[in-house]
């Protein structure tokens, strides 16, 4: 009895192994292959959310239809872990693509030596959408406009000092003279919302998308009012909110804000490591662009309320070049205004 059970399990295992190899045919490199999509963020955020949908639909547009599976490297360190992992450890044959946190390419210049990666050498496949960060005031806040926030202290929900929820309000304090007091320690978007609902804080940062998907009633009931957004141009969802760039007073300030904006423009961008044959990057870019027009993909994204404003690989390369061209004085100012994480000794 025991032997028979073991045998049947064995047979099942062998069958499972080989059935996966079956469709190998002359469909080019990707036929019968499998692509691993490394996600450098928690498995419950929008990085993973976007990637799950992409994985399902992009496969149809790659010749040979390789299966795309997700490998999530989550947690606060996920972005850095995925960047290092993609840069150094994965096979360079185009079977592994990745997405890391949008701040990673800029962070390479703001915190040199912190990571073991070089985003300027990666092959950028494409971007599903820039993700706009903002700072918004709660309807019970003592200040209701940017001008008023310069006069009274407003408590802001934040997660930790290295998070955009802390960096953006502190940028405003530094350059616009607002009196935000950041309360760190809130857990995620939900925790920050709860802090406002309970009257502990009166404002919060993070992406506007996090409001749209997780608390749209805040918008409908006019409870949360965005006063500033980043990005190179205004987000279509926030046509009446000024960008940091628009409010810049000096060229150096403008340079700093541009760096910030480029970070969020990277949004949900996918890449392959350096050293992958160029033809495969072309294949993946083509498939990515086709997916961005795929009605099934768009329908699923719409249902999830995730915006799709795609950018091509070459456009992302252009952004990288802009970061590289940042003047030293701008970089120095940006470092002093944005880097709160202690340098390792």
């Amino acid at each position: 009895m025991k032997m028979r059970t073991s045998l049947s399990i064995l047979a099942l295992g062998v069958a499972a192994t080989f059935s996966l190899d079956a469709p190998a045919a002359a469909q080019g490199f990707y036929a019968g292959k499998q692509i691993t999509l490394v996600v450098g963020a928690s498995n419950r955020g929008t990085y993973a959310g976007y990637s799950r949908v992409l994985a399902i639909h992009m496969s149809k547009h790659i010749p040979g239809n390789p299966k795309i599976i997700l490998s999530v490297k989550g947690g606060a360190s996920g972005g850095m872990v995925a960047a290092n992992f993609m840069n150094n450890a994965v096979p360079k044959d185009g079977t592994v693509m990745g997405i890391t946190q949008q701040t990673i390419p800029v962070s390479q210049f703001l915190r040199p030596g912190a990571g073991r990666y070089d985003a300027t050498k990666w092959g950028w496949i494409g971007n599903i959408s820039p993700i706009t960060n903002m700072v918004a005031l709660w309807h019970k806040s003592p200040a209701q406009t940017l001008e008023e926030a310069k006069k009274v202290e407003v408590r802001v929900s934040a997660t930790g000092k290295s998070s955009p929820t802390y960096v953006y309000p502190s940028l405003m304090n530094r350059f616009f003279g607002t009196k935000f007091k950041m309360i760190t320690g809130y857990k995620g978007i939900g925790g920050m919302n709860q802090g406002m609902l309970q009257g502990e804080t009166h404002a919060r940062g993070a992406s506007w998308l996090s409001v749209v998907t997780k608390a749209p009633h805040f918008i409908k009931e006019k409870k949360l009012k965005p006063i500033i957004q980043d990005g190179l141009k205004r987000d279509p969802m926030l046509p009446n909110v000024p960008t940091f760039l628009e409010l810049a007073k000096t060229p150096t300030e403008k340079g700093v804000f541009e760096l910030v904006a480029i970070g969020s423009t990277f949004g949900r961008s996918y890449f392959i490591p350096q050293g992958v044959p160029a033809a495969r990057l072309v294949t993946l870019r083509k498939a990515f662009q086709a997916t961005m027009k795929d009605p099934a993909f768009l329908a699923q994204m719409k249902k999830q309320k995730n915006p799709v404003n795609p950018m091509t690989g070459p456009e992302l390369e252009g952004l990288i070049k802009r970061i590289q061209a940042t003047k030293p004085d701008v970089l120095k100012l940006a470092q002093s205004a944005m880097v709160f994480k202690k340098k390792k000794k």
Partner: peptide, 12 residues
């Protein structure tokens, strides 16, 4: 990493 951005006992 704590909420002040300090890497406590992380040994690099």
């Amino acid at each position: 990493e704590d909420t002040a951005g300090e890497l406590r006992w992380s040994f690099d």
